[in-house]
């Protein structure tokens, strides 16, 4: 099975004044295509730091991160933007929709930043509508985020993460702000995406949610403390 992404001895230092904080101290994992990984661990263990690196939002201090056959650690800022736009879909705990935009416009945003800025035509508009319908918001296309519930906002975020058809979906506590019923709906959606072949890497604090993934990784103090199929 080919790899969607691979990290090799990944390290990340933050400078707090003159003192370096080692948020990641050498992480190595392979993510095969179609994987569904839940990352767990106590607060401050480096989960979000790892996810940000996987999302090409930042470069590692040392080590390699290979995605789409290329090493991200040596890329320019613009190249990182392109990786984020084409290869990765983000889902955040706090949804992160653009408040002045409607559902349709929010889903459209990643299309504005495609390489070469191709025109957003009828085909794209059609795809945006299909995605909105797929996440169950076909009747809310012109609503703005403040008119939607948390669960609905997260569905918009899921539709948005899919618009450029990325290989990898990164989710940092995607159900952290939701009740258990909505949590279940969102998880079902992620599971469906995974069944369709997308690689999903998700940070979560909840064992019940982590159990739904194919495998779980436990982090502690910036390294991987354990790994296995739940309950492992």
């Amino acid at each position: 099975m080919s790899l969607a992404a691979q990290v090799i001895d990944l390290q990340k230092d933050y400078m707090l004044g003159a003192v370096p904080v080692q948020a990641l101290r050498g992480v190595s994992i392979d993510f095969p295509r179609g994987d569904f990984v839940a990352i767990m661990g106590s607060s401050g263990s480096g989960k979000s730091t790892l996810l940000n690196l996987l999302g090409a939002l930042d470069r590692p201090t040392r080590g390699k991160y290979i995605v789409g056959g290329r090493d991200v650690s040596s890329m320019t800022d613009d190249e990182l933007s392109t990786i984020r736009n084409e290869k990765i879909g983000f889902i955040f705990q706090s949804y992160n929709l653009i408040p002045q935009y409607t559902v349709l416009e929010n889903i459209e945003v990643p299309l504005h930043y495609r390489t070469g800025y191709p025109k957003i035509g009828d085909r794209e508009q059609q795809r945006i509508r299909e995605l909105a319908e797929m996440v169950g918001l076909g009747d809310r296309l012109d609503h703005r985020p403040f008119q939607l519930s948390g669960g609905q906002q997260q569905r918009v975020a899921i539709a948005r993460s899919l618009v450029n058809d990325p290989e990898i979906i990164l989710a940092d506590e995607p159900t952290g702000n939701l009740d258990s019923k909505t949590e279940q709906e969102i998880m079902e959606m992620l599971l469906r995406l995974n069944r369709e072949g997308r690689t999903i890497i998700m940070v979560t604090h909840e064992p019940a949610v982590a159990r739904l993934a194919k495998r779980q990784i436990y982090m502690k103090d910036g390294v991987i403390a354990g790994e296995g199929v739940f309950p492992g």
Binding site: D77, D78, E86, F90
Partner: peptide
């Protein structure tokens, strides 16, 4: 930040 995460260049 959102736009940058979604692929916006500087």
């Amino acid at each position: 930040g959102i736009r940058r995460a979604l692929g916006a260049k500087r």
